[in-house]
């Protein structure tokens, strides 16, 4: 039995459809209830629906064998897991965004608002820029508008939210997409099952 952790929400729905299309379906998942665990013994799968930011935690602790998670979560955390496949779903970019009229002042540390503290820190270390980070948990776009920070580091999908808040992409840090991850121990003992699933996924994604 493969325990698969999926992120609740839009990405999770897309990933489930992908898995179902290659023979790992579990129709119960469509039932309108509050269950978080769905099992299909015939297909040998058990799906766990968890908060997107928790998928990698479940995998790292062996509560699930494999899972799907955004690259942003993997880069922000430090998880001892295998990252087996780029599913190419949920594509977006991790960016530095700033007000449309922003001009960088190199005489002082840059003030950065973000919920991705480690990604921001690592990025600015890589370009040797001194920063002050203000960690926010949501509505990050407001921070530079209120003068709280100079820039933000956040995920940009279409750029619509930035535009509506008079912000623009200032620098691009990394592309983000959904990744198939596995617990290291699970891969040692269920490697054949995981490889079979990966092979089918790769074929399906190439179509």
């Amino acid at each position: 039995m493969l325990n698969i952790a999926l992120p609740k929400g839009r990405l999770g729905d897309k990933v489930y459809e992908l898995f179902a299309s290659i023979g790992y379906d579990c129709s119960e998942i469509y039932s309108d209830n509050r269950k978080l665990v769905f099992e299909n013994k015939e297909n040998g799968v058990r799906y766990l629906l968890v908060k997107p930011s928790d998928v990698a935690i479940y995998i790292a602790h062996g509560a699930a064998d494999i899972g799907v998670v955004g690259k942003d979560i993997l880069e922000e955390g430090d998880f001892d897991i295998y990252e087996l496949l780029d599913l190419g779903l949920g594509k977006c970019n991790m960016c530095v965004a700033a007000p449309n009229d922003y001009v960088e002042d190199f005489d002082r540390p840059l003030r950065v608002a973000t919920k991705f503290v480690n990604i921001a820190k690592n990025y600015y270390i890589s370009i040797n820029r001194e920063i002050e980070i203000i960690k926010l948990n949501g509505s990050i776009e407001i921070a530079p508008l209120l003068g709280l920070t100079d820039v933000i580091v956040d995920i940009v999908e279409s750029g619509k939210t930035l535009k509506e808040n008079n912000l623009r992409v200032y620098e691009q840090i990394m592309p983000i997409s959904a990744r198939l991850i596995a617990n290291k121990s699970s891969y040692k003992f269920k490697g054949e099952d995981i490889d079979r699933l990966m092979e089918k996924l790769t074929k399906e994604l190439a179509k």
Binding site: N183, S185, K188
Partner: peptide, 8 residues
């Protein structure tokens, strides 16, 4: 690795 432990 052993089967019941999630890490080495």
């Amino acid at each position: 690795y052993v089967e019941k432990a999630p890490s080495a």
